[in-house]
Amino acid sequence: MLSEDLKKEIEAEVKKYPTRRSAVMAALTMAQLDKGRVTAEDMREVADLLGINPVDVHEIGTFYTMYNVERPVGKYHIQVCWNISCSLLGAEHLIEHIEKLLGIKLGETTPDKKFTLTTVECLGSCGTAPMMQINDDYYENLTGERVEEILKGLD
C-alpha cells in the first residue's frame, strides 16, 4: 500500500513533466524507500496513479538495477564495486573479507536480515577506489580494517 503522503509526493513529481508516465521512475524509487523493495501491489498502485498499465510499471521495475522488485534486501544493502578501477585496487579481496565477516556469500542476506551483500558496477568513485555503497551512502578508499569498522558502526 502506498501511503497518502507518498501519493502526494508522487503527484509533486508528476508536475515536473508534460506526461504523467515520466514520473514512474521517481514513484518506484519513493515506493522502495521504506521497505527497501518494490512489491507487485506497489507497482499496481503506481500504475493506477499514473494512468498506465501495470505491465508498463513492471517493465520499468525490472529493467533498472536499483529497484529491488520482489527481491528482499536486508536493512543494510552493501554493494561493492567490482569494476576495473576498484578491482585494480583489491575489490576482490574486499568482497572475500566481507563474506568472511558476515558469514554469507555474494547475493545472500544474513539470517537476521541485517545485511545483504552484492556487487555493483562502477559508481563513479574510481579515484577513491576501492569503494562500496551501503544503502545511499558511499564509502571510499576502503581497506579491510576500514570495512570492519564501518560494519561494526551500523546497528
Partner: peptide
C-alpha cells in the same frame, strides 16, 4: 530526473526514453 541504475541511459536517445518513463 534521477535514473535508477542503467549504464545505457547515458546514450542520449536511451536517456530520452528513460525520461519519458
Amino acid at each position: 530526473h534521477a535514473g535508477a541504475g542503467a549504464y545505457i541511459c547515458g546514450e542520449e536517445t536511451a536517456l530520452l526514453e528513460s525520461l519519458e518513463g
